[in-house]
Write a protein that binds this DNA or RNA. Structure first.
Lengths: 336, 336
DNA sequence: ACGCAGCGTCCTATCAATAGAACGATGCAA
DNA sequence: TTGCATCGTTCTATTGATAGGACGCTGCGT
């Protein structure tokens, strides 16, 4: 295989009228230029440059070859220019997957805000509760909610939000209030379908005590809205995300069950194939979502008068050197 | 400076649908391909290929970049094709310089034969007796005659012919025959203008004795035809090349002076800038001239019934390996 | 469910290209 | 005519890329 860099060296030497001048102009050693041109001539079997100490001129065949080499370099520059132009302003299409419920009570609004803020970016959003294969299915990013401990993955994760949860029921569903996790045993429950077919509430007291309560749900579904409707109708006790039901709690149409014990928070995170080569558009989206989630959480916490929970430690999102976190104050203000 | 070879690697990997397949197809180690593509992505700041073990697909931006890289390689191939096409059949213009006299009595015919034999080659022939600067003046080849010892030069030399010489005068010019070189002293002489302004005949006997006779010519010129005319008119004794006057000798209009002592032969040779990168057309011309000179010499020697002189040892013309000397029997036959 | 072939990536001893200096040649100015 | 600055080329100790193998992972066949 020929060394395409020789074409570059050749063009530089011709354009500067000598090895020494080309070396100075390009910061390349003249010994390298001398050697590479000699090797190029050997490979081609022609003399491109007639030269001796103090003498230098390009042969006729060398001139024609030079023109063709310039064409090569122009194409190479065009390829780089395409990438540079592609990088410059976030644009293009982002393929995202997101759990259905999360879209309906939280992320749907965020995606809409994002598109308003970035007119040149399009989203292709797949609403799904299955665990998508990011690489094979061609997603740029997938939004997921998982409960700790998170499994390790070849994919890169960026935490977006905590997902505090409530155990709730319709007011009056419980004949008498309960005070201990053990009292939950045997009560009717509703749950999200689990792949492992085991159902348990992992609870934590304000003091840090932990309890695990196993239950057998009388209603299983992968539609979180259906779970909420069933709870509102008094079908049983269910664990649901704060962001989904905070207005029900504020209105009193749902009430916390065992309020001194809180379920473990989930972690909302984005997963994507690699930090290297992340398109500006995708990076912009992920940063945006992280910022919007933080702002929304503050609003909900203030509304419910609850202190912000300490964040879970998850797979590290390495801060990008030289890139300060983006703040969208104006976007936050206008949307309220 | 980017490594243009990375574009080649990228195209190969994309076209073969994986690193392993590309490595097999190109004979390149897959570790190199893996590394070079990773470095290319780092430099560009984008992910061109989404991949993991057993998974491989080219991103959208990667596909567009691939198209541009193909364009680069096509241009590079075009440049090589131009050179290959340029090399294939001897064609184009050869710039030659040749001494005027040599043209008139020997090489003019040879150049004509050459052009007949090679319709696609043109010659630009400068008839000159000055020592041209081959590199600076853009000659492909210069024909020269020099007497030993030849000076060393950065130019490459290829001997074409010996140039045996005769001391001659008009019949009857000498009142009495002379037998020794010393008897030449004081006789009227004619000579080619010398840059050194010293004039001497270097003679050698059949036994190998050598003699040097200094003389002061009464006629100096750089026109060899004029020298011949003057000798034919009886103006004096002159040294002339055999090829120029062999017919005069055969006809008796010129006779040898001091026939037992012969002047040293000159060497007709071609000089050119470099063996490396010698165009096929130039190589063809030089080979042709060497062969034609050999054939002509044979004819003249047979006509004058003289044994061929042993050739002088000169700067070596390295035989080109694998390339047998070309013989042009048909050309020799038709021209007689 | 398990074993295996083959994938892409990483590691390191080896090899080849390079940087930088030395050399001989050349043109120009004094 | 001579000295000097700068040219292109060559040489070699050093540096960096590579070959080749090892590794972990994945998909497919049994």
């Amino acid at each position: 295989m020929q060394d395409l860099n020789d074409l570059y060296y050749f063009v530089q030497v011709v354009e500067h009228g000598g090895f020494a001048a080309a070396a100075r102009a390009t910061g390349t050693q003249k010994s390298r230029l001398s050697r590479r041109i000699a090797m190029l001539e050997d490979r081609l079997g022609v003399r491109l440059i007639q030269r001796s100490p103090r003498r230098f001129f390009v042969t006729d065949v060398g001139r024609e070859y030079y023109q063709r080499c310039v064409a090569v370099l122009i194409e190479a520059e065009a390829a780089d220019a395409f990438i540079a132009q592609h990088q410059g302003e976030p644009q293009g299409t982002i393929r995202v997957s997101c759990p259905t419920a999360l879209i309906s009570f939280q992320f749907g609004r965020l995606f809409a805000r994002f598109m308003t803020a970035h007119p040149k970016i399009s989203l292709q959003l797949e609403s799904t509760n299955r665990r998508v294969d990011v690489i094979a299915e061609g997603f740029d990013v997938s939004i997921r909610v998982r409960f700790p401990p998170l499994e390790r993955s070849e994919l890169v994760m960026r935490k977006l939000d905590d997902s505090p949860q409530y155990l709730v029921a319709k007011p009056g569903f419980l004949k008498e209030p309960i005070g201990e996790p053990a009292e939950l045993t045997g009560l009717p429950s509703l749950a999200w379908t689990s792949a492992t077919h085991t159902y348990e509430w992992r609870l934590e007291s304000a003091e840090g005590e932990q309890a695990v309560v196993r239950h057998e749900p009388r209603f299983l579904t992968d539609d979180m809205a259906a779970l909420r409707e069933a709870a509102l109708d008094g079908a049983g006790i269910v664990q649901l995300p704060t962001m989904m039901i905070w207005k029900d709690l504020a209105a009193g149409t749902l009430v916390p069950v065992l309020p001194q014990w809180r379920p473990a928070s989930g972690i909302v995170h984005a997963v994507f194939p690699s930090r290297r080569g992340l398109l500006p558009s995708v990076r912009t989206l992920i940063d945006f979502l992280a910022q919007e989630c933080a702002a929304d959480r503050l609003t909900v916490d203030e509304s419910l008068a609850w202190p912000a929970r300490p964040p879970h430690i998850m797979a590290e999102s390495i801060p990008r050197p030289g890139m300060p976190p983006r703040r969208r104050k104006d976007a936050l203000k206008t949307e309220r």
